[in-house]
């Protein structure tokens, strides 16, 4: 196991290095006018040049990448090499946003709570709903319960998130006035307002994701319910609840957990549409504003953090696999 772990960790580091390089190469395609963008009305070529140097854009992509990596471990200053009124970005430095006058880490840190709450709430909701409906559909295979569950799931699967979000917003908040307009607060500050704000985003994300888990759970259940040991368990006279809960569901759980872990990781990187529609101060809405009002350091930072979550989640899922099933270790 430990050998496998070491191999996987090395692979993780390699992936992170490759990923950060890919991000740098991709974003180096962006117009070099970033220096011009942070320049005002009295914009002269000299000021643009000074900005380029301050932002480190005068260097080659490779050098910029090196400065960036160094910044993560040792911090960096703007301009490089310090000087009067140089900005200090302490390690781990993911860059500094001159648009928002804050370090990228600080900006992401401020928005992480809303994103985490959104992801966790939605995760619990869609896992529970998805698995319960999936089991139900499998047990009633071919009957009306199965058909209606699968029909609703297909609809949920097909709804574009922004349309669903807008429709929910329109009816629940604007037409029926069941909830106030979303205004995010920390749950520790004002739990009531927090729940009123988060309820709809949770439901919207849950509808979008639950559909997938309904389908997955159902097909897993159908597969395991057909296995011999289930028939044996039934033949032994075990109650149906035990057969389904203890044997069938557990056996089919692994792919569900895998998918769940990866989805959770993806959501931690911010749900762009849902956060935007419901005005939540999360990573996703930060990303959109960094695109509209071009803010390169923030984009790079968010891309890396998000990809980092996914890669780590992949590793955790694989390790869990290996812990459960020794054959995986050998195969890898």
């Amino acid at each position: 196991m430990s050998g496998y772990l070491v191999r996987r960790l090395m692979l993780l580091v390699l992936m992170l290095v490759l990923l950060s390089m890919a991000v740098f190469v991709l974003f180096s395609l962006l117009p070099a006018d970033v220096a011009r963008l942070s320049c005002g009305k009295a914009c002269t070529p000299e000021i643009i040049e000074a900005n380029r140097i301050r932002l480190g854009l005068d260097k080659s992509v490779i050098e910029q990448y090196w400065v960036f990596v160094k910044g993560i471990f040792a911090g960096r200053t703007y301009p490089e090499g310090g000087g009067p009124a140089a900005l200090v970005c302490a390690a781990p430095c993911l860059g500094y946003s001159f648009r928002k006058n804050a370090t990228v880490l600080q900006l992401i840190g401020e928005r992480l709570p809303a994103t985490i709450w959104l992801a966790l709430g939605a995760f619990v909701l869609f896992m529970v709903v998805g698995m319960v409906t999936g089991v139900l559909a499998a047990l009633r295979r071919g009957r009306w319960q199965d058909k209606s569950i699968m029909g609703v799931a297909l609809l949920g699967y097909s709804l574009p998130s922004f349309f669903l979000g807008l429709v929910v917003l329109f009816f629940v908040i604007i037409r029926w006035k069941l909830l106030p307009y979303p205004s995010y607060v920390s749950p520790f500050e004002n739990p009531e307002q927090f729940f009123k704000t988060m309820l709809l985003p949770w439901i919207v994300l849950a509808i979008l994701y639950a559909a997938f888990y309904t389908r997955l759970t159902r097909s897993q259940m159908l597969e395991t319910l057909g296995e011999d040991y289930i028939r044996t368990a039934r033949a032994k006279g075990l109650p149906e609840r035990t057969v389904v809960g203890k044997h069938a569901l557990r056996a089919g759980l692994t792919p569900i957990v895998t998918a769940g872990g990866l989805d959770l990781a993806g959501l931690l990187g911010g749900a762009i549409i849902t956060e935007s529609v419901f005005s939540l101060p999360g990573i996703g809405s930060l990303a959109v504003s960094a695109v509209v009002d071009p803010d390169l350091p923030v984009l790079v930072g968010i891309t890396l953090i998000t990809a980092f979550f996914v890669i780590v989640a992949n590793l955790i899922v694989d390790l869990l696999y290996a812990a459960i099933d020794p054959r995986v270790r050998v195969a890898a």
């Binding site: 942070s38 320049c39 005002g40 009305k41 009295a42 000021i47 000074a50 301050r54 009124a85």
Partner: peptide, 14 residues
């Protein structure tokens, strides 16, 4: 006058 750091504002002083 520190146009590299204080950028984007009115420039009447300049």
């Amino acid at each position: 006058f520190a146009t590299d750091i204080i950028a984007g504002g009115p420039t009447y002083a300049l």
